[in-house]
Nucleic acid binder design. Structure first.
Lengths: 211, 211
DNA sequence: GACAATAAACCGACTGGTTGGTATATTAAC
DNA sequence: GTTAATATACCAACCAGTCGGTTTATTGTC
């Protein structure tokens, strides 16, 4: 049996493999995820795997790039962009990130943040694709942060880029807390503190009690 | 040759293996670190490995527990404890964490935060040891945070525990940024924002420009 | 304090199974 | 009938863990 497609309802093998990679690597990491695991999950054979990717490493790079594109699309169409005030858009982004911290860990944790820990030293090309994804995501926040800063904290000495990256650091750290504890609430509460920080930063009244 | 010790200058094989594990797992992760790698790094044989540990998994658990003890000792003897004001002690802790972000990534990143990403789903016992390490470390901050809160933000609605864990989330996230980018500065700048948050939280005047 | 018996630490060759990757054959599409 | 997509069988390297045996340290006995 071979080439069983042209059935337009079925996704191409390459896409099936990338989806399998996203799910399995998010759950078990890059090294623990074997090519056979990926083929089984995607429902294709090993021949198909190496027809579509020259190596496991190339699959990981493709998965990281695909992750970047998919998350970009996902957040671009999220509702928080509709706010008039850039502060509301920025805070809306963080609140949105908090809202989607629900259900299964495998569904909201970050593929590229997970991979970085394993590959930063041994697989520089995968690492670069991962950093590209994180950095691009952070850069997408910079316009709103810049506008917010101009409006509400024009003299602040921190840089827009550093705050954008800080939001990503908090989220990545929150994922680690959730994984380690098995309790998603710990992640939520860390993002609560990030929200609170952002309000304080722009004099928008944080939680009660800080004056 | 065997039992070559009683030479008080040489460390026991078990300790050598745990040191090797800390270094190699921090660099390459748990799965990528092979038993042979560990033996070579420690300068012992495979027989010795399995004489000291019943499995690779047990070594990882022991390494996580040792990590917990070593970091506890390291931070207990750090200078920030000498401050009179609990706010200064708390902020001093965070500043100290920032100061040690220097030199090689392998020397300041977190063993247990790295392992969690790979093992949380597949090796619950390792994961538990990792969480124990993170949680205990956070708990060690709670007394100072509690005292700071009573003094400077008694009506704040956030919990002491959540703020302690948030500091850990920021640090873990900062490590990911540093690994991904290869630039330690990104980690430092994220910790800058954490310091700034803590100052704002207790009305201790953050960076200029926030009012 | 000599020495035999026992225990603890250690070694490296070996094993069964796994891994990423290859070679080759088969099928579908144009 | 050429080409792209798929499948299966296979391989050499590698992996965690085992095993039989050696060397050193400790302990009990005289």
């Amino acid at each position: 049996m071979a080439r069983p497609i042209t059935d337009s309802s079925k996704k191409p093998s390459r896409e099936l493999l990338l989806e399998a990679a996203t799910e399995l690597i998010r759950t078990n990491g890059y090294t623990s995820t074997t090519v056979d695991d990926l083929c089984q999950k995607a429902g294709v054979s090993k021949g198909t795997f190496f027809h579509n990717f020259i190596s496991k490493e190339e699959l990981a790079i493709s998965a990281a790039n695909r992750w970047s594109e998919m998350t970009s699309g996902f957040f671009r169409s999220a509702p928080y962009h509709q706010h008039k005030d850039p502060f509301d858009r920025f805070l809306g982004y963080v609140s949105f990130r908090k809202e989607i911290l629900k259900g299964d860990l495998r569904d909201f944790t970050c593929l590229v943040g997970t991979m970085v820990q394993e590959v930063y030293s041994s697989h520089p090309e995968i690492n670069q694709a991962c950093y590209q994804s994180i950095a691009t995501h952070a850069e997408n926040l910079e316009a709103d942060i810049e506008a917010t800063k101009k409006l509400y904290a024009p003299k602040a000495t921190w840089t827009v880029k550093s705050l954008a990256l800080h939001t990503q650091a908090v989220l990545q750290g929150a994922f680690i807390l959730a994984k380690a504890s098995g309790d998603v609430k710990l992640a939520s509460e860390s993002v609560d503190h990030l929200e609170n920080y952002i309000r304080l930063l722009f004099n928008k009244a944080g939680l009660p009690g800080e004056k």
